[in-house]
């Protein structure tokens, strides 16, 4: 038992010196990761809201395409979708100017499907009495949505939306396979040069984790804000 433990070459698993030395390069990659994540999240939210509302429409012409869209995006792997966008679209003459743009488009469109479902279920979980009270007070649909329904739905949608954001941040690592120089790509460059793959992957994992911890902190703050009207 102890023989086994003593025979482990810890320096192959994690070499702190190398990790520290390559930190500037990793941080550079992290910047690209965050740019892709933030833009993707923003577009996925906006487009998800549109698709979510269309999905709830009583008009088949709106709800059916929305359903099909959500079904496709939830049913296909992000990596496959990114491949189709980046390598498939040029065949029909659409070429992305940079792989970063392709990544943002792919991640946004894919996660918009998830966001649409989150938004739809959050809006539908606002009790019927709230809709009726707003209606009986002569509010029109837009006023009711903006002032009464969406603020309450936001509270419900907050935790799953933050999970999506973390999924997006981690999902950007897939962009490394279409040569986007983000966090994982930077780690792989050093790994290839030094043959210390494990050190670099563990370093990258720790950085993803730290970013998600920070985001989790913001989630808690926001949740507390939105929960302030609930007793106990």
């Amino acid at each position: 038992m102890f023989d086994w433990f003593n025979q482990i070459h810890w320096e192959h698993l994690f070499n702190p010196e190398l990790a520290l030395d390559s930190l500037p390069l990793l941080i550079e990659g992290l910047q690209i990761t965050m740019i892709i994540s933030l833009f993707s999240m923003l577009f996925a939210l906006l487009f998800g809201l549109v698709v979510g509302i269309a999905r709830m429409s009583k008009f088949k012409l709106l709800s059916f395409p929305a359903r099909a869209y959500i079904s496709f995006m939830r049913g296909t792997p992000l990596l496959v979708f990114i491949f189709i966008l980046y390598y498939g679209l040029p065949v029909i003459g659409i070429q992305f100017t940079s792989p970063i743009v392709a990544a943002i488009v792919g991640i946004s469109l894919n996660f918009a499907g998830y966001n649409a479902e989150i938004i739809r279920s959050a809006i539908m979980s606002v009790p019927k009495g709230q809709w009726e009270a707003a209606e009986s007070l002569q509010m029109n649909y837009f006023q009711m949505m903006r002032r009464i329904i969406i603020p309450q739905a936001t509270r419900i949608a907050l935790p799953p939306t933050f999970s999506i954001f973390m999924d997006i941040i981690k999902g950007t690592s897939l962009a490394s396979v279409i040569t986007v120089h983000e966090l994982l790509y930077s780690a792989r460059i050093v790994a290839g040069r030094t043959y210390e793959s494990m050190t670099m992957y563990i370093a990258a994992a720790l950085i993803y984790w730290i970013v998600c911890v920070i985001i989790g902190y913001f989630q808690q703050r926001l949740e507390a804000r939105y929960n302030r009207y609930i007793s106990n």
Binding site: P127, G129, Q130, E132, A133, A134, S136, L137, Q138, I148, P151, Q152, R155, Y229, I230
Partner: peptide
């Protein structure tokens, strides 16, 4: 606009 409604379940806006 002529009528105001009071519900059995109150339905105040919780937020």
């Amino acid at each position: 606009q002529y009528s105001g409604m009071v519900f059995q379940g109150f339905h105040l806006f919780p937020h």
